[in-house]
């Protein structure tokens, strides 16, 4: 058992489902005789996030990562399932804040930075006087590595990395114990990404934060997380301890993901890949949705949805053929 798995969960998610109605407008459906159409963006997923730890969700575009983030923070209403936060320091359930991918779109361009950060303080009446609000804003700016005078500026006066610091300061304003970070560094250059990731790790230690971290970059995920959940077409196909998952990926999709990441230290320059295409979430394949791309699929795979099994090392995997011993890959 790893240390992280022994910790009490800060967040428990069970049987979570989110269905979007993506039907054509009613009139078109009637005229063109089209049926209603639904996307199962999140399909019966379960996970826990250890208190003070970091669980990352990885997967390809459209697999449902952001939808999970939005469900957890209450920006979407779940179609079914349970999202339960443990009690926080004050006894009430933990409050979660969200940091978004695009530091350009998520800050109001017409507001001074100090007002952007002060908004949650004023909204939730977290400070009594104007002077206290100003003091807290300055403290937050310093916490994220900006200077107090930066509060007077507007978002456009900052670089991408600095704007992401401002988003983090705003998210921290309401003193959350849980942060949901949806691709917080995907829009940033690598050198700037390192600054923001270092800041996030430092804040986690200093403030005892718990992270649900979303990314499609496996090296970033490896750096940040204690546990990793791999999603494919709305389902979690494998979830396990970070080091285990990298050393011994059990699900064929996780193996594919790890094989295909361009690797700086050991580049594979002459490979020829036939990794297939990501299927449409509107018409997911039958049985195991990965079967059209899976190199070891059998007849059973296209007929039967694999159940999630827990292996001896604590990894959970949804594959008919995944075996409970070190893979010989």
């Amino acid at each position: 058992m790893t240390v992280s798995a022994q910790k009490k969960p800060a967040l428990t998610v069970n049987g979570l489902v989110k269905t979007f109605d993506v039907s054509a407008p009613w009139l078109n459906r009637v005229i063109e005789r089209k049926p209603r159409q639904f996307v199962q963006a999140v399909n019966d997923i379960a996970f826990t996030v250890p208190a003070g730890g970091c669980l990352s969700i990885v997967g390809e575009s459209g697999c449902g990562k952001s939808t999970v983030a939005r469900l957890v923070t209450g920006l979407h209403k779940a179609s079914a399932g349970e999202i339960r936060f443990a009690p926080g320091r004050a006894g009430a359930p933990l409050s979660a804040q969200m940091i978004f991918q695009d530091p350009y779109a998520s800050l109001n361009p017409r507001w001074r930075v100090k007002n952007i950060i002060a908004e949650p303080l004023r909204e939730l009446k977290l400070r009594d006087t104007a002077a206290e609000v100003i003091e807290r804003v300055e403290e937050l700016l310093l916490t994220v590595g900006l200077s107090a005078s930066d509060g007077e500026k507007f978002p456009h006066e900052f670089s991408g990395g600095q704007r992401q610091r401002i988003s983090i300061a705003r998210a921290l304003a309401s003193e959350p114990e849980f942060l949901v970070c949806d691709e917080p560094t995907s829009a940033l250059d690598v050198s700037v990404q390192a600054q923001v990731l270092n800041l996030m790790r430092r804040l986690q230690d200093e403030l005892g934060l718990t992270y649900l971290f979303i990314s499609h970059d496996m090296s970033v995920v490896r750096h940040m997380s204690d546990r990793i959940a791999v999603m494919y077409l709305g389902r979690i196909v494998e979830e396990g301890d970070t080091e285990e998952l990298f050393a011994r990926p059990r699900h064929p999709y996780t193996q594919l993901l790890l094989q295909t990441i361009p690797n700086i230290t050991s580049p594979r320059r002459d490979r020829e890949l036939a990794a297939g295409e990501v299927p449409s979430p509107l018409k997911p394949p039958s049985g195991c949705t990965f079967h059209p791309r899976c190199p070891i699929a059998t007849a059973r795979c296209s007929a039967e949805v694999p159940a999630v099994r827990t292996l001896a090392n604590g990894t959970r995997v949804a594959c008919h053929l995944a075996i409970d011993e070190p893979a010989s890959a």
Partner: peptide, 17 residues
């Protein structure tokens, strides 16, 4: 180059410029 998180091993703090 030093600021890129490695796939091989985990470090406490990334090198940053």
């Amino acid at each position: 180059m030093a600021s890129i998180p490695s796939l091989g091993a985990r470090v406490e703090k990334l090198n940053q410029i």
